[in-house]
């Protein structure tokens, strides 16, 4: 009986790892979608209100979903304080432990945050466009890989569990 219970627990645990991996993957997709929306809003504010970058970041922070609200609010504070741009971007990332992005999107976000507020309106628009494109590409890649990857994570989890059970029994 104890063996059977142990086997069930191992199977559930291994499957849970697969599910966790899948959830993490889905959260990346959801965060990228929210980031893309926030970047669109930011570009609209830049062109329409022409407010200063800290003020625009505050506005975007109010309208963005978590964890982007925290990220933009932190970035606004850092830029307002006069922290060097790259350091401001890094500190803002560190302040948001819930941020979960794939490497390429993270790099795009860092470069975007560093370049923000360095150019005239044309330059800012180009930066926004380029960064949005990179985020969209990352999102497309994740979406494309979503189906097969989710299945393989769950299958991998389950089969690892079964393999362990066989070994145990």
């Amino acid at each position: 009986m104890i063996r059977v219970l142990g086997a069930v627990m191992v199977l559930l645990g291994a499957t849970w790892i697969g599910i966790r991996k899948t959830l993490c993957y889905l959260s990346q997709i959801s965060q990228l979608k929210a980031l893309s929306t926030s970047m669109e809003m930011l570009q609209c504010e830049l062109n329409y209100t022409m407010y200063s970058v800290p003020k625009i970041l505050d506005l975007i922070s109010e309208r963005s979903k978590a964890p982007w609200d925290q990220y933009f609010s932190q970035l606004s504070g850092e830029i307002g304080k006069g922290t060097p741009r790259e350091l401001a971007a890094r500190r803002s990332l560190e302040a948001c432990p819930k941020l979960n992005l794939p490497g390429d999107a993270l790099l795009a976000l860092l470069e975007f945050s560093t370049a923000l507020g360095s150019y005239d309106l044309d330059g800012e628009n180009r930066i926004c466009k380029l960064s949005s494109l990179r985020v969209s590409q990352s999102l497309e890649r994740l979406e494309r890989e979503k189906g097969p990857l989710v299945k393989s994570y769950i299958a991998l989890g389950a089969s690892t569990g079964i393999a362990l059970i066989i070994l145990m029994l």
Partner: peptide, 16 residues
Amino acid sequence: QVMIDRATERSPHAVM
């Protein structure tokens, strides 16, 4: 540069 950054709030687009 520090003065310009502070005066423009590091947002040259807004005061171009």
